[in-house]
Design a protein around this nucleic acid. Structure first.
Ligand SMILES: [Mn+2]
Ligand SMILES: [Mn+2]
Ligand SMILES: [Mn+2]
Ligand SMILES: [Mn+2]
Lengths: 218, 218
DNA sequence: AATAAAATTTAGACTAGTCTAAAAATATTT
DNA sequence: AAATATTTTTAGACTAGTCTAAATTTTATT
């Protein structure tokens, strides 16, 4: 039996370790879990005892295969619920994350598989992130960050790295959505801001924005 | 801020006290909460401090108006999710209760009101129980228990008192569903079993069954 | 290589919710 | 009205998850 808190720590470790590949620091976990390092130490000991994580004192933590299975399953649930909220309940993409944080912990195989079918097996969530299937498989999406796009080329927006409400609302107000086509006009060396062309307008976005928007060449 | 456990105790008190009217015993709560009387005492003290309940030592507990609001809201969520599971995700009526026990604790006004709209404002859940609206209002359903139905009369099945999977599956296997029309043929004085006529067949049901099926005269 | 800084762990305490065992209050029976 | 049985409460202990403060280990700087 796994607790809600354990699930959240496992998810955090998974995301921080680039999908379970690399070792994760105590402080980094404390940061995203909004807790203290000492609490993290206690928890990773527990995850280690339960065989969800490999942990050596002072050396950081990685997920075991069992831990990765848990993480992927929670991510599947999170993203499917996000699709449900947007597609069926008329939520906007900046409103879904918080609610999905709760829904992702509902434990019912049948519920999530039926939800998947009801949504017609979506491949991406409202932020462009891939949705793992029942077996936990999902394809890596080919994408680069706007900050590294080349001037003169044309791209399609395919995802965001920051799914905070304020960032998503910023994109809305600038008419940028998933699927929007943009052309890179100019990179300003002074502050790394970038001028991009949309359908009708040109806008300048900050480095901050450029680091959080994913593109794919078209 | 109210915890999941507090919500469950409030719901139990509401149901045990016939929707918040009468005083509820410590032992009765312990029974439905699957816990010990001493734990219940601790919790009702806490609910009392938080003004969800009125409590005098050794005298049982009742809900305050605030407590009743909480209870009705959880019941609204529980029943709406049950409808969703049956109508949209192809659950059968004996599978929904357990999952709804978890979903009912998701805290989002928008979620539940949009779900309500998505389901087109259902008035009853899959077990015939009324669904409170956004303001907490719901009409009492006119119904009697099969055990007290009169021999010779014809009724429509409108609800169940026991929503355990085994009882609901029993009804399924005897072709009894909500809306089914039955006629009372005979009440056996020896064991209070009742012979009822369905569309094509006659069956005898035990007193146990007769106490858990609600009818409305047609 | 020594020292300082940063990261991590340990020790001990706190809350929510639970338990057992014993004490107190209430209800029932004689 | 007393004795007995039942119900309820209290006292004290336990677990999960958290915290602060202090100790330890690792990393960076001189
Ligand atoms: Mn999200
Ligand atoms: Mn997402
Ligand atoms: Mn139910
Ligand atoms: Mn129901």
């Amino acid at each position: 039996m796994i607790t809600l808190t354990e699930e959240n720590y496992i998810k955090a470790i998974y995301h921080l370790g680039s999908n379970g590949d690399t070792s994760v620091n105590t402080n980094a976990i404390a940061e995203v879990m909004q807790t203290k390092a000492s609490s993290v130490t206690d928890m990773i000991k527990k995850l280690s005892e339960k065989n969800y994580a490999d942990y050596k004192k002072y050396q950081g933590v990685t997920l075991t295969e069992a831990g990765r299975v848990v993480a992927v399953n929670i991510i599947r649930k999170h993203r499917l619920w996000e699709v449900f909220l947007v597609e069926k309940l008329n939520f906007s993409w900046d409103e879904v994350h918080e609610v999905a944080e709760h829904l992702e912990h509902i434990k019912s195989e049948k519920l999530i598989n039926q939800l998947d079918a009801f949504l017609e097996f979506p491949k991406h969530d409202p932020h462009g992130d891939p949705i793992p299937d029942k077996e936990g498989n999902f394809q890596h999406i080919e994408k680069i960050i706007l900050a590294k796009a080349e001037v003169g080329s044309t791209y399609k927006c395919v995802g965001v790295d920051d799914d905070s409400s304020s960032f998503l609302k910023y994109l809305d107000s600038n008419k940028i959505a998933l699927g929007t086509i943009i052309t890179i006009k100019h990179r300003e060396p002074y502050d790394n801001s970038i001028k991009i062309a949309l359908e009708n307008t040109e806008i300048v976005v900050s480095q901050n924005v450029a680091k959080n928007l994913y593109l794919k060449k078209v």
